[in-house]
């Protein structure tokens, strides 16, 4: 498989990273180099093998589904680039 400039543009958009058109050929080349390296994995026979999620044979911990913390809106907003009236502020989303 190999990535075209169009596909590189699409990946950049999916990742929400602005890439200049002029930078697309180099990006596609780099991504292709890395993907080519990954293709070694095709040599391995993985028939019947379950994909591994976590390394420790453990069941994720459970707890009561109750509120355990809260009432700290000020602290949560304290690092926001733009916070107003107890909310995160962003550019207009809906026309």
């Amino acid at each position: 498989m190999s990535i075209t400039e169009d596909q590189a543009r699409k990946v950049a958009h999916l990742a929400r990273i602005a890439v200049d058109d002029a930078a697309l050929p180099a990006l596609a080349r780099e991504l292709n180099g890395i993907l080519h390296f990954m293709e070694q994995l095709n040599e391995v026979d993985v028939t019947g093998v379950e994909p591994m999620t976590g390394v420790t044979p453990m069941r994720l911990k459970r707890r009561e589904d109750v509120v355990t913390t809260g009432d700290m809106a000020d602290r949560i907003l304290s690092n926001a680039p733009d916070a107003r009236e107890g909310f995160f502020a962003v550019p207009k989303v809906v026309e």
Partner: peptide
């Protein structure tokens, strides 16, 4: 591409383990 790359890598990870 999920199966071709990500799932395959996770299967190989199981074999490494």
């Amino acid at each position: 591409f999920y199966d071709a790359y990500y799932n395959r890598a996770r299967k190989v990870r199981a074999l490494i383990k």
